[in-house]
Simulated assay, not measured.
Amino acid sequence: MISYCTNVHPAEDLPGILAQLDAYAVPVRERLGAGRLGVGLWLAAPVARGLAEDRTARARLRTELDARGLAVYTLNAFPYGGFHADVVKHAVYRPTWTEAARTSYTLDCVTVLTDLLADDAEYGSISTLPLAWREPWSVEDDRRAAAALRQVTDALRPTPVRLAIEPEPGCVLDTVADAARWLPRYADLDLVGLCLDTCHLAVSFADPGHTLSGLDAAGIRVMKVQASAALHVDAPREQEARSALAAFDEPRYLHQVRELAAGGEVLAVDDLPEAEAGLPGDGPWRVHFHLPLHAQPPRPLRATTDVLTTVLAGLTGDPHVEVETYTWSVLPGEPDLIEGIAAELRWAEENLSREGIAS
């Protein structure tokens, strides 16, 4: 089943989460005419802790979800909290995998998902950050992160839940290729795999086919796909392109930018405001800004939904698919969130079913 990620909603306590599901998820399900709707839950750390400590509360939440026709196959445990603060930027990468709080949060999510998991799920997936932002990071940090990962892996063994590391530009595991080198050294690949975010993949200018071949060669399973699209601009020097990009330069989230140079080198800056001074603009740019799957941005910009469909056409196995457009609140204009989420899920069902992904 295709899910939509609830990190688009700002609630960080259980009553607020249920209220937002009533305000958005249930109307989306009804608008789609669906008996059930997949939701990829985001639970801020205090909520996850409270649920993990209270089996009765988990049972009540499962009952509440069932009553609303909502099914859970996956959790997004990348943001720890504060994901809708006025400024998020680098704070989304804290705590890192070197910090005990990250381990505790992930363990709580394992406990919660085990009890919330839909009855027809073959497994549950939890997506998590790619260790940390790239600086500072040391050999000792690598060792500590690996030890934390082993602790979480031990907790996964008796459960149907699997962990999915999500590479992101600018992080320690910046690309899928970085993850394919790191994970076989430190992870039990039966229990830990990849969350393949197709916006992040597009931003890196990686070839989707080569990416999937590399994962197969490394024995790494894609546990989860975050169905997402990045901004692409072919001629970033042109004034029309700069003007169009300016509408997406907002202060809450980090919008990493990559430029594909003529020789194939990928040039990088860490945020959109740095791009004009930090990149030459001779080659195309891609910007980490999750775009609605069903809509194209204004020309001369476009969305990289072709990367998403190429990835899903080439995948083996049956990964969870989660539509993760968390940027609705910072998109230009004032989009209707219910209609927007419903339209994305319609697009996903129509387009991804052609690639053999069950809806």
Rank of each mutant, 00 (worst) to 15 (best):
Y4P: 07
A11D: 13
E12S: 08
D13R: 13
D22Y: 10
A25N: 12
P27S: 00
E30V: 03
R31N: 06
L37C: 12
G40I: 08
G40A: 12
R55S: 14
A59V: 10
L61E: 03
L65C: 05
L75R: 11
Y80N: 07
T98I: 06
A101F: 01
C109I: 07
V110K: 03
T114E: 15
D115E: 15
D115M: 08
V139N: 08
A147D: 15
A147Q: 14
R150W: 13
V152Y: 01
P160S: 10
V161K: 01
G170H: 08
G170P: 04
A180Y: 06
W182V: 06
D188K: 02
L191R: 15
H200V: 10
K224Y: 00
Q239A: 10
Q239C: 00
A244T: 01
P251S: 11
A261H: 10
G263R: 05
G264M: 06
V266D: 08
L272H: 08
G283Q: 09
F289S: 07
L291K: 05
Q296W: 03
Q296H: 10
T304D: 14
G314Y: 04
G314L: 02
E322T: 13
T327R: 12
G333R: 12
P335W: 04
I341F: 11
A343I: 09
E350K: 14
